[in-house]
């Protein structure tokens, strides 16, 4: 019974983590966090999604992270709104913003929205520490759950020469 449970946990962890390096997991997680903070009905969110699917990172973890951080958005939105409002009210940048806004597709980007701008800034600000922390975390997790029997003996196919990390 215990063995079956452990096997199930191992399989689940592998589904998310297997065949993926900690850095790729961390990139996926960080991009997902960025997507989660930003409202979705604009080109910024769409670009982030395209970026997520374009980069070599863990998409599953990225989507899960995006969903997780989207659920947390009601708590982060007030702060994002204040941050975005502050950023968008910088006097010296008004003409730049206006010029960008007047460009074709300018309003579609949605950067004139306080929560979009604030969420993006918040995400960018948090991205670097989150990336490093998550990388450490996933390395630890992988070391616990990711090793397969026989890996130390050089029998793990992902450790074979030519396998991508």
């Amino acid at each position: 019974m215990v063995a079956e449970s452990i096997s199930f946990i191992r399989r689940s962890a592998n589904w998310f983590l297997a065949s993926t390096a900690p850095s790729q997991l961390a990139i996926g997680f960080t991009l997902g966090m960025l997507i989660g903070f930003v409202p979705k009905t604009n080109l910024i969110a769409l670009s982030l999604c395209i970026l997520l699917f374009s980069l070599r990172c863990n998409k599953g973890l990225g989507l899960a992270s995006a969903i997780l951080f989207s659920l947390a958005a009601p708590w982060t939105d007030p702060f994002a709104h204040k941050l975005g409002l502050m950023a968008l009210q910088v006097d010296t940048l008004q003409s730049t913003y206006a010029a960008a806004f007047r460009l074709p597709f300018g309003p579609w980007w949605g950067f004139h929205n306080t929560v979009v701008a604030g969420g993006l800034l918040l995400g960018i600000y948090a991205a670097i520490p989150v990336y490093f922390l998550s990388r450490i975390f996933f390395s630890g997790v992988q070391s616990v759950f990711g090793q397969k029997p026989g890996a130390r003996l050089g029998l793990d196919p992902e450790r074979q020469p030519g396998a991508t990390e």
């Binding site: 409202p39 709104h81 409002l85 003409s95 913003y97 004139h112 929205n113 306080t114 604030g118």
Partner: peptide, 11 residues
């Protein structure tokens, strides 16, 4: 709608 749309000067 989340947040507020800011109207930039001249728009």
């Amino acid at each position: 709608k989340r947040g507020v749309d800011v109207l930039f000067a001249g728009c």
